[in-house]
Design a protein around this nucleic acid. Structure first.
Lengths: 241, 241
DNA sequence: TTTTCTTTGCGTAAAATTTACACAATTAGT
DNA sequence: ACTAATTGTGTAAATTTTACGCAAAGAAAA
């Protein structure tokens, strides 16, 4: 561990952190991954102990290739979730002069989308927990604000690239997909128009699980056509509604 | 001036800078404001001396309220241009571990749109100059990359809020407006459809300068209806094409 | 068990938006 | 003087978006 007072600069330097907004979807509502502060042992735990906060931590000046690497590393350390650097999208910088009581800290927020079912097992439940979007506790620092900005960013991004693949399980139903979109965009769609539009994109394939469906009440199962999905993701798409 | 070696931290801290991408429009092409490095006297001039670069500089840890304030302050100091903090839009963070040869420096890029005619007079021509988008010299650090990202961000933003007001002179013509959009989006539009769409937004008012127009070759003059323009800017709009 | 309510899939007609396109008049250039 | 380029204007066709009803089966209630 570094000796106290070892690092000296001619001018004042801020501390820099990366914070992570990890979104999941449980089939009903959008979920966010939060950590409880103060259970770790490093310097970052000396403020807002016991409060909930976004996972995140300090840039390792010597080791982190980019700030996104900080996000990935810290998320792993704090919650057990191992995501790739490219899973993170930058939300923005939060640099208010007194946002951290200890010293000047500017943070770069990043969001990521994950398949909840897949990662819930990996989540270190000692320190971290998933919260429904409508049930977020008070958060440390300016993390409430960061979370709101991240959400509105997701809301925007969803217009230009499909997000279902990252959030839904491998196999899902159209009503689930629609509910996901409705949760993020906070609107309601007409069922038939939603289905038509989605089918028009040609990213859905029906899953044939052998069972010849008797009724129409049981929703059909789909999975994403990964090839078309990625093509659409790269070329960009326009979700109008 | 701070004494050398005065600032001590328990852990390494990065330096943080704000860089500015200032876009202008001269009626023909998009322009960018650049500075020539090495004419100042502070610490930031010890690298890439003599090269062109984006205006920008170090966060003043004790004084800058936010990183956007850094951007505004540095732009003023380096080029003479005085913009308001809210004129800057954050583009993103550039944090590559070796992007600055001297020490670890992460920068947050910001872009701003200005009326060229208005600000050219204020520009400190000793240090700064305007370059056409197609005629950008090699830039210091990773500023080429930053510039490209900023441009593509502008390109995206233009779909959601009108940008003419910030870039065009008070009075302008439809062909000018169209050329501006074509310059940013790097496409060509049909003249009639463009005019129809713009008129449909109801943000244009014809300027009646008394002269009864004889020909149709001389373009009509317009100015923006500020009220509708701002309403549209806030409610968001969809430029489809 | 029976009845009622909710959910699902499907398709079409009307409305709105986007696209394609031609001409007459005048200034700028040769 | 002649030619080429630029500007404003409007409409028909194609595409996209919106609104909406029904029949069947499972879920919930009686």
């Amino acid at each position: 561990m570094a000796q106290k007072g070892k690092y000296v600069y001619e001018y004042p330097h801020p501390a820099v952190t990366a914070d992570c907004i990890v979104f999941g979807y449980d089939g009903k509502a959008l979920k966010i991954l939060l950590i409880k502060r103060g259970l770790e042992k490093d310097a970052s735990s000396t403020a807002y102990v016991g409060e909930w906060a976004l996972p995140g931590g300090f840039l390792d000046v010597e080791k982190d290739k980019t700030i996104a690497h900080t996000a990935a590393r810290e998320l792993k350390e704090e919650t057990g979730l191992k995501l790739s650097v490219k899973d993170f999208k930058e939300v923005g910088t939060f640099s208010d002069i007194k946002r951290d009581p200890r010293e000047r800290v500017i943070t770069i927020a990043h969001y990521a989308l994950v398949k909840l079912a897949r990662v819930q097992a990996d989540t270190d439940a000692e320190k971290a927990d998933w919260f429904s979007w409508n049930d977020i506790p008070h958060l440390a620092f300016d993390h409430d604000k960061i979370l709101r900005v991240a959400f509105s960013r997701l809301k925007q991004d969803i217009h230009f690239e499909p997000v279902g693949f990252e959030l839904l399980p491998e196999v899902f139903t159209l009503p689930q997909l629609q509910n996901l979109y409705e949760s993020i965009l906070e609107v309601k769609f007409d069922r038939r128009n939603f289905a038509n539009k989605m089918k028009h994109f040609e990213i859905l394939s029906e899953v044939d699980d052998g069972t010849p469906r008797r009724g129409t009440r049981t929703p059909l199962k789909y999975h994403f056509d990964k090839e078309n999905y990625d093509r659409l993701k790269n070329s960009g798409f326009q979700l109008e509604f």
